[in-house]
């Protein structure tokens, strides 16, 4: 059974120096109340793992702009020029990872695998800086390590009190594998949290056994 918590108490479980997997693509799907509360509580030296960080106004970019992030691992940060700037000034470490490898590294962590072997990034900056070339049976691969978090912060559309999650359209993205890959999984749920058994088992995208904490959210999806 997932625990229903106030956002303040839920976020207080996140500590300085934690590695945090954050769902979302362009900040859509990054939990809004949880990020608000992280800004308020001011946890420091976080390692943030999120696809793109979005901007300094929405998504993980807000935490980077506030100086709470020691290292940022993403596939792209084109809307967040402050990230490469901070990296250049040695105020934050920035690791780039091709988006498909990024997703698989998180999956590897959550599924008990020792990393990934992929052709993506061979002969590129990825091989130079962040991965290791290996030859197996005459084929070249890049080995990349799993990406595991102490905490995952996710957003879902629906949930029941057992923690079962349903996402809305592309809200799913990285969140299904992130729910596997962290010790503590905190989910902000936008629709009213439902009683156990209200969601048909075949509709569930993430089984509740993976979810530790539910926070009642309430954003609407109008663009």
């Amino acid at each position: 059974m997932a625990k229903l918590m106030d956002v303040k108490d839920a976020v207080s479980l996140i500590k300085d120096g934690d590695t945090v997997l954050a769902g979302g693509f362009y900040g859509n799907g990054t939990p809004v109340l949880i990020v608000d509360e992280l800004l308020r509580q001011g946890q420091k030296d976080l390692i943030m793992i999120n696809n793109d960080g979005n901007t300094v106004e929405k998504g993980v970019g807000r935490l980077i702009a506030a100086g709470q992030v020691k290292k940022f691992i993403c596939s792209w940060c084109g809307r967040l020029p402050i990230a490469p700037k901070l990296a250049e000034e040695c105020k934050m470490e920035l690791e780039l990872c091709p988006q498909g490898s990024f997703a698989e590294r998180i999956r590897a962590a959550g599924y008990g695998l020792g990393g990934i072997l992929t052709p993506t990034g061979l002969n590129t900056i990825v091989e130079e800086k962040w991965a290791q070339r290996v030859e197996l049976n005459g084929k070249q691969w890049l080995y990349q390590t799993p990406l595991k978090g102490n905490v995952a912060i996710l957003e879902a559309d629906r949930a029941d009190e057992a923690g079962n999650l349903v996402f809305h359209l592309t809200q799913r993205a990285f969140s299904t594998v992130m729910a596997f890959a962290a010790d503590l999984v905190i989910v902000e749920v936008n629709k009213s949290i439902e009683s156990v058994g209200s969601i048909s088992p075949e509709e569930i995208h993430v089984p509740g056994i993976l979810v530790d904490v539910l926070v009642q959210g309430g954003i609407t999806y109008e663009q």
């Binding site: 596939s75 084109g78 990296a87 780039l96 091709p98 590129t124």
Partner: peptide
Amino acid sequence: GKFAGMGGAMDLVVG
């Protein structure tokens, strides 16, 4: 130039 990351491009070109 601008350092923005590769997004999904490296996966697309090998895949």
